[in-house]
């Protein structure tokens, strides 16, 4: 097992990609959008600005992880870089794991920089807002959210690599990964609505339940409300179980990816 050279060169390559700096710039722009939207609303403008800024942060990191993992893996295969790499004494699984680690590093750096951008943006908005009851921003909570968002990015990267290996079209791989993400976000609400509904047949309820257990649950990483409303309390157990959950599930996805890549004709 020696995935580190591939991880290193992947990371070096991804940092110089346009999407890295481009999406960070987009995030700064979206902060201004959040501020503008919040000006429209009556009452607690900081709450609304935070809602939007954090949602933009959440989705930018998700998009970045998908783009980076799918794009980079797919390009390797279609541009024949993979021949250069696999002609060296590296196993195919080394390549997949290395690619994943490289993407993880890139996502980590991206999330970290985004955290700084978003936090400074929110703090500026809250300090300039003219409110009778000031909306307190707790930076530790933003940081905890960023940690979860990073875990989500890692999780999504694993799926991105899997889809890039599985599909022969990059667009298809990208769309599938994005749909998977959206479906994973919807899972909890759907289950909540279906199980409590009187109009859904038991068979369909069972199907939804099974999907709820097996499908990746991306809504776990969404703790934006915890950052916005200080009244909400979260136990450390929650963070620990989300960490373990994403660790186990990500490993499973990577296992499938290596299995498929071992059998793929290049």
């Amino acid at each position: 097992m020696n995935p580190f050279p591939v991880a290193k060169i992947t990371f070096e390559e991804l940092l110089k990609e346009k999407s890295f700096i481009g999406l960070l710039t987009l995030e700064v722009f979206l902060l201004f959008v959040s501020k503008l939207i919040s000006n429209v609303v009556a009452g607690d403008t900081v709450k609304v600005a935070m809602d939007f800024a954090l949602s933009f942060f959440f989705f930018t990191v998700a998009l970045y992880s998908v783009f980076v993992s799918v794009g980079s893996t797919f390009r390797d295969v279609s541009d024949r870089v993979v021949y250069l790499i696999l002609s060296k004494p590296l196993k195919r699984s080394d390549y997949v794991i290395g690619k994943f680690l490289g993407c993880t590093l890139a996502v980590a750096l991206f999330t970290f920089l985004s955290f700084f951008i978003v936090t400074s943006g929110i703090l500026t908005i809250s300090s300039t807002a003219n409110l009778y009851v000031p909306h307190v921003v707790v930076v530790e909570r933003v940081f905890l959210l960023s940690l979860l968002v990073f875990l989500m990015g890692v999780f999504l990267s694993a799926f991105g690599i899997l889809f890039a290996i599985l599909f022969t079209s990059q667009v298809l791989a990208l769309i599938s990964a994005i749909f998977l993400f959206l479906a994973g976000l919807e899972l909890s609400p759907v289950k909540e609505l279906v199980v409590s509904s009187k109009y859904v047949s038991p068979v369909n309820k069972l199907i939804v339940q099974i999907a709820y257990y097996l499908f990746p649950n991306f809504s776990l990483f969404d703790v934006k409300d915890y950052v916005v409303h200080l009244a909400i309390k979260v136990s450390p157990l929650f963070f620990a179980s989300v960490f373990i959950y994403s660790l186990i599930y990500t490993s499973a996805v990577l296992l499938v990816a290596t299995y498929l890549f071992d059998r793929r004709e290049l």
Binding site: I37, V41, K47, V48, D51, F52, S55, F58, F59, L182, L185, E186, P189, F218, S219, D222, K224, D225, V228
Partner: peptide
């Protein structure tokens, strides 16, 4: 999906 609070806003 994932946008409960902005939807409420």
């Amino acid at each position: 999906p994932g946008l409960r609070s902005p939807a409420a806003d």
